[in-house]
Nucleic acid binder design. Structure first.
Length: 483
RNA sequence: GUCUCCGUCGUCUAGAGGCCUAGGACAUCGGGUUUUCAUCCCGGCAACACGGGUUCGACUCCCGUCGGAGAUGCCA
């Protein structure tokens, strides 16, 4: 039991879920699931200024949508709670004081405004005064008089600290470049740097999975673990996800690079499964040529050794492709259901033929949000020039089109209802009678019905969706145009 | 500035000294199928950052250079 794998995802409730954070959660989840371990959700809300109402709901919704179920969390007690940091204030206070007693930290009474960085002093971090040297009596006196204070970690100025990361290997950092970071803020809340160590230990986290931006501060965490005499967890630092800006420069993926939150991507028409599959492959490889994996399949093949060190650029093009793969592999019923909210056809004549339209759309859709523009021509005939009837391959031109439409028009009138088959038969009959390729009448009819060169589906399908009345109207419009 | 990390096609990556004439995928280009488009097939272009070592042999190991990123907050 002591060797059980326990990983955690510890997001801040800031209102949206960055895909980088989601990927961190995914790997932590994958590590736990692939080793029969536990996955814990912890809310890091120690920064009151950044707190956003309902943000915790966004976290729950995102994890659920992505399929990452947690074994413990605010809503699922596993005996290590509370799982919300703001509810653990007293715990942090107690340990911070203990650390002061152990001489691993000290009270700092300096003002919030720190001295400026300069050439003389490029390293402005840490306590600007010398609070660490204050005699115990003086500290007690100031505290008793109600002076506001923070608690800072006492970092040795000599020596170096070495640690081993599961991904990056052995890393050594000189202690002198580490500053006396704040552990407990003046409002009594702990900083991330402190709360993390306390919680990870108390919640018995065995693998700390997080982004590589924490690599250089890891020695400070280890000093904390040692000061308390605690076992240091395994570290799994992840390569960063990068974004490319307009100038072609890459940097940590952020809002200026486009939609980077999970909910944003989903509302644009990316499927949650596709997003999860895509980000799993950003910085991790199954060491095979396979790319499409369900979450369950990922959990089966996930290995820490597949994790990469170098950062990866988020490529919307490839996500798009993967999304289309997921769309194509859906059953027609499922696609019709998920695509429906994007189609914007409520209350229109298209509503009744949605199933039919969806069948046409499915193999041609990469992003669900593109659907309205793809089917706009069904709702309203676009204005188009007669030259649209020109097509070399189909051997069609305006004059020919005119002849085709003139001759076939009566045949569109006769049937009770216009079916795709009827349209195809009309075209076939014309082609045979005039000894031309089928493509010729097909082209003319399709352009007349659609008013645009590229359409999802051919003349028959479009005719059936439009219905007899509308089809006739559009053919008349075309004939008038070809006068 | 200082510290840390990273460096294989444009992008995501495989490659753990000979299997590499460096593989796959996206993108891109071309061809085929198709009444359009798309799907689906087939094919092309395209990379080991550079320079030194080590070795019989280096994409793989070592050093340096250059380039990129991250950290350096009472943010996480």
């Amino acid at each position: 039991m002591a060797d059980q794998v326990r990983t955690r995802f510890a997001p801040s409730p800031t209102g949206f879920m960055h895909v980088g954070n989601l990927r961190t959660a995914l790997y932590a989840w994958l590590l736990a699931r692939s080793r029969q371990g536990k996955f814990i959700l912890r809310i890091e809300d120690t920064d009151r200024a950044r707190y956003v109402e309902n943000a915790v709901d966004v976290i729950y919704a995102t994890l659920r949508s992505a399929g990452l179920d947690h074994d413990e969390g605010p809503d699922r007690d596993g005996g290590f709670g509370p799982y919300v940091q703001s509810e653990r204030r007293e715990i942090y206070r107690k340990y911070a004081e203990e650390l002061v007693a152990r001489n691993g930290a000290y009270y700092c009474f300096c003002d919030k405004r720190e001295e400026e960085e300069s050439e003389e002093n490029p390293h402005a971090g840490g306590c600007p005064g010398h609070c660490g040297d204050l005699p115990a009596g003086e500290v007690a006196r100031r505290l008793a008089s109600g002076a506001t204070a923070v608690i800072r970690q006492r970092v040795p100025r000599d020596g170096a600290t070495t640690f081993t990361d599961c991904v990056f290997g052995e890393i050594t950092i000189e202690n002198k470049v580490l500053d006396d970071q704040i552990l407990l803020k003046s409002d009594g809340m702990p900083t991330y740097n402190f709360a993390n160590v306390i919680d990870d230990h108390l919640m018995q986290i065995s693998y700390v999975v997080r982004g590589s931006e924490y690599l250089s501060s890891t020695p400070k965490y280890n000093m904390l673990y040692r000061a308390f005499g605690w076992e240091i967890p395994q570290y799994v630092h992840l390569p960063l996800i990068m974004g490319r800006d307009a100038d072609g420069n890459v940097s940590k993926l952020s809002k200026r690079h486009g939609s980077v939150s999970f909910e944003n991507l989903v509302s644009e028409g990316y499927l949650p499964e596709a997003v999860v599959n895509y980000i799993a492959l950003l910085g991790w490889s199954p060491k095979s040529d396979r790319e499409i994996f369900s979450l369950a399949e990922l959990a089966e093949v996930f290995r820490l050794s597949g994790l990469n060190k170098s950062s990866a650029v988020f490529d919307y093009e490839k996500l798009r492709w993967m999304n289309s793969e997921y769309i194509k592999s859906m059953t027609p019923e499922k696609f019709a259901a998920v695509a429906r909210p994007f189609a914007q056809i409520d209350g229109t004549a298209l509503e009744s033929s949605w199933q039919q339209i969806a069948r046409l759309l499915q193999p041609r859709t990469e992003l669900l949000s593109e659907i309205p523009e793809k089917i706009a021509f069904l709702r309203a005939l676009p204005d188009y020039p007669p030259e649209l009837f020109d097509n070399k391959k189909s051997k069609c031109d305006p004059a020919t089109a005119r002849a085709i439409l003139d001759e076939t028009l009566p045949q569109f009138r006769s049937p009770e209802k216009l079916s795709a088959e009827t349209v195809n038969t009309i075209a076939a009959r014309y082609a045979e009678k005039h000894q031309v390729k089928l493509g010729q009448p097909m082209w003319a009819i399709r352009i007349a019905l659609a008013g645009q060169a590229v359409t999802p589906g051919g003349a028959g399908e479009i005719g059936e969706i439009l219905g007899k009345e509308e089809a006739l109207r559009r053919i008349e419009t075309a004939r008038a145009k070809l006068q």
